[in-house]
Amino acid sequence: MIPVIIIGLGVIMLAAAIAAVYFKSLLASIISAGVISLLASVIYLILGSPDVAMTEASIGSGLTTVIFLFALHRVRKGKSDD
């Protein structure tokens, strides 16, 4: 059962990664990067390291995405080219 979940998560993450690279709008790719981190924390749980899962969830998906958004905001205030 576990391998199926892992492979499913893996496929979604790969899709999100490729999406992040090819998205036109910056916002979308930032969000998809956040999604990758979120799913990664789930994988960590499965791989038996809860500490890392918590860190990845909070820092990876949470803070990194926020910082990206702040940066995007600072940059976009000028004109919205991405």
Binding site: A20, V21, L47
Partner: peptide, 28 residues
């Protein structure tokens, strides 16, 4: 490949996440 600076940094953070997954999976 991406010309946009922020896209480059996103690429960098994805690569980073990839590395972390590799490290954890090595310890399983």
């Amino acid at each position: 490949t991406r010309k946009n600076l922020i896209k480059m940094v996103i690429g960098f953070s994805i690569a980073d996440t990839g590395t972390h997954i590799i490290i954890v999976s090595l310890g399983y």
